[in-house]
């Protein structure tokens, strides 16, 4: 996708979102819809203006394929992070993500990868979970395991 197309897609996506918000606001009561409509309608008008400007610009800017590949891979890793936390929980998912990223993507030595993952685990478990009493998310597998044990 060229940069111009990406720009159009971004603005069009925002326009659709704000239009949906404005439409959804009309279903609210008179007091609750006042502020949403006061904000959504001018924002929608400005978005349409911006979208028209983008469509009129006939710029063809080539996107750098190498940069696009890095972009895709980075977002895939972030998707992995979210999935890992959801599935394995914070205490296992986050150190695992950090160690794996440092070792495979950043090509850091094993010692650095394992050392930093361990440090993160100590902060998560020792400081946040144990000392400050912030209950860490167990993850889907953790909850299933807990239910199976009980």
């Amino acid at each position: 996708m060229t940069l111009a197309r990406q720009r159009i897609a971004l603005t069009a996506g925002l326009t659709v979102l704000v239009a949906l918000a404005a439409a959804s606001a009309t279903t609210l009561g008179p007091a609750a819809r006042r502020m949403p409509l006061v904000v959504a309608l001018p924002t929608l008008a400005l978005l349409v203006l911006e979208l028209t400007r983008h469509l009129r610009e006939a710029r063809v800017e080539a996107d750098d394929p190498a940069a696009r590949r890095v972009e895709t891979v980075t977002f895939a890793w972030l998707g992995g992070l979210v999935a890992g936390v959801w599935l394995l929980g914070m205490l296992a998912g986050l150190p695992l993500f950090l160690g794996a990223y440092l070792r495979t993507r950043s090509r850091e030595p094993w010692t650095v990868a394992i050392g930093m993952a361990l440090c993160v685990w100590v902060v998560l478990f020792g400081v946040l979970d144990y000392a400050l009493g912030i209950q860490m998310h167990d993850g889907l597998l953790g909850s299933l395991l807990g239910r199976w044990r009980s």
């Binding site: 992070l81 936390v85 950090l98 930093m116 993160v120």
Partner: peptide, 17 residues
């Protein structure tokens, strides 16, 4: 390449905490 994954991890912790 070292800071980025660390910041991603800390961002996840911060958002959750």
């Amino acid at each position: 390449r070292v800071v980025a994954p660390l910041v991603f991890t800390l961002a996840a912790v911060g958002a959750f905490a």
